[in-house]
Write a protein that binds this DNA or RNA. Sequence first.
DNA 1: ACTCGGTACCTTTAGACAGCATGTC
DNA 2: CTAAAGGTACCGAGT
Length: 832
Amino acid sequence: MKTADLAGLPPGVPEHLRDEGIEELYPPQAEAVEAGVTAGESLVASVPTASGKTLVAELAMLSAVERGGKALYIVPLRALASEKKAEFERWEEYGIDVGVSTGNYESSGEWLASRDIIVATSEKVDSLVRNNAPWVEDLSCVVADEVHLVDDSHRGPTLEVTLGKLRKINPGLQVVALSATVGNPEDIAEWLDAELVESDWRPIDLKMGVHYGNAITFDDGSQREVRVGKGDRQTPALVADILDDDSGGDEDDGGGSSLVFVNSRRNAEASAKRLADVTGKRITSAERGELAEIAQEIRDVSDTETSDTLANCVAKGAAFHHAGLAAEHRSLVEDAFRDRLIKVISATPTLAAGVNTPSRRVIVRDWQRYDGDFGGMKPLDVLEVHQMMGRAGRPGLDPYGEAVLLAKNADTRDELFERYIWADAEPVRSKLAAEPALRTHLLATVASGFAHTREGLLEFLDRTLYATQTDEPGRLERVTDNVLDYLEANGFVERDGDGITATSVGHTVSRLYLDPMSAAEIIDGLRWASDHREEKLRELEGEAGGSTRENRADAEANAEAGFRRASEMVPDADDAEGDESEGEFETDRTYPTALGLFHLVCRTPDMYQLYLKSGDREEYTERCYEREPELLGNTPSEYEDVRFEEWLSALKTARLLEDWANEVDEDRITERYGVGPGDIRGKVETAEWLLGAAEQLTSEIDASATIAVREAKMRVQYGVRDELIDLAGIRGVGRKRARRLFEAGIETRADLREADKSVVLAALRGRRKTAENVLEAAGRKDPSMDDVREADAEDVPDATFETAKNRRGDGDGGDDGDADGSQEQASLGDFG
DNA sequence: ACTCGGTACCTTTAGACAGCATGTC
DNA sequence: CTAAAGGTACCGAGT
């Protein structure tokens, strides 16, 4: 089918497609059109990754808009939301407006109402539906990307329920569900009353095989010799092999890149270090120069060991990729890989699920992963391995893609063929009928008025995928009853005969997108705090003799991190800043303390806790007793309560947050807790969200803790001690600058408006432009620095990369919060 | 004195959505 | 009840 023959699209679109080189639809795309995607028909497309699913979605959405409708594109990851948005923006010249809505980007209602295509995560859509976003009922087309994720026990039910609600709000809704190839696409089609297009067609051939001994055996029966010297490893040999291969479709640069999938962060880093020796020998000097720049950018992102190790690998053309990296790290690596500067990435599954990073060869090194519940190494799902293998083959660059599994013996080779290469993916099974999922969704369903009775709820649930595939009739009903009892017992819903209504707290919980169990924990903790306030305050006063608790805890943390007494004598740069303050203000001590609140939100099911390593149990047990007066609730018994373990890991997580809010440096935190820079960001972000939620819950119950909660929230948000909250709230001032200003005697915004400009300039290390911006943001009438003499602005070792950073930044940004602008690297282009 | 190789033992283990209101060094 | 890779401390042989 020719794109020129497509009917029902906005004028100009078929021509635009032709100009992009798309004249003929791929077979699955043509099938989709024949099934009526451009005419408003619902469709399930179960096709391989990179086989043109996005175009199917675009055709559906564009034709829907052309008919006067509005389209929603649901993605599983925030990073994918910005990727898709950028992709769809090419239709703006035909009058199509695109908007994104995720937890960290634009969200306001009216603005989205004016867009034709909206890209959002499933949770965000759920939240918008709960809060009755007005434009939801204008939708005429919804695309669900990666629908096979309804199988995910944590996030799958959200997608499942959300699609159900959208269809209920809007009975004529066109649903286009895009799925990887799965075992039972017909179940999904039946659930969604949709046509099914099923295909394993790919635009680029994919050869799958297993490497064993000195050769890869492919599924088509062919073999390729890849020698592995004695004592050498398979992976480097395979990476070197394809890098030295010149048979690629393009002549200008040697062979192809590789992706290596491994099963742990540590393995990813270790593997990348080894692979750097392989790639380092094979890069041109032009590439070396560009890689050095990227390595420097990586170092600038974060001053941690992880960052440093990554930079060292990248300088040689290799990289690792996992969730411990900061988001900026990840996009730097992804972009450089797409630009073919980085030749190989060893990655955990993050990369298989994330943004598009195709590669000539994919090596699935580890096909088993540790699983505590399973009690050992568990083989990956066929679907997951297929997703990884599907990353092989770069359109227009490679003649075909190669996906290789590794075997150490002939038996394993045969097993791998059997288990992954010849096997079909597992069927998708709904995970809806479980308490954690229903807790959240039943409350939301009641709160937003979708159902008012038990029967109404069951009827709504009857339209889900779960209902179409269950073989255990009473289960959903049983779990529903348990959950309703739970919700009632905790005061989130009230039952009056048959009727169910959400209470005021219930509405708030639903609106805040909290798991009701998290809300219950927070409410209990806050109530407990107000009941025990006087008693606990006395305990805290009593103990806070000479030094304050926080300072003492810090000193101890320093001592043990350094394993030397000396660190107590020599003030440590990280912590010294705050040490002189406090002391005489003990009577003003707020209650609950920040640590108490951090611990409270950390023991919530919405917070993914750090776990205890060897030695941590003793350490945090001790710390737990020291800090017990601050914790909100009774500590479970160390000996007879299984919850004690969890109490401790919550404490460990809370301590990380406390360090962050005490201005401890990032590298210090990563080292102390054994986490990466990305993990700190993640913990801080969830803590911020949960404390924000807690703040709003205080007004539902007892307002006495409101101030303390807000202060704790702002301290994690800015990463500062309480005395800096005011300063750190100023645009352009973060934890570092705020501390320097404070030390220069400028303690508040008001001070900043009055202060001697040369003092401000010196505190900001002599950067005039920065100083002007800061003064202006603080509301000073005469922010100009023109008449100020340079005092002592000599210690500016970091002035060099200030310029590099400035290219992002200014301008108010508006809707383009796209933090990982993928187009930035486009100009690097080819060097022969 | 130092490096390399082998070995036995110990440790650790993937990922990432959401409220609200605006912006790090 | 279940695993395996990386890291490390240690030992002995070769230079």
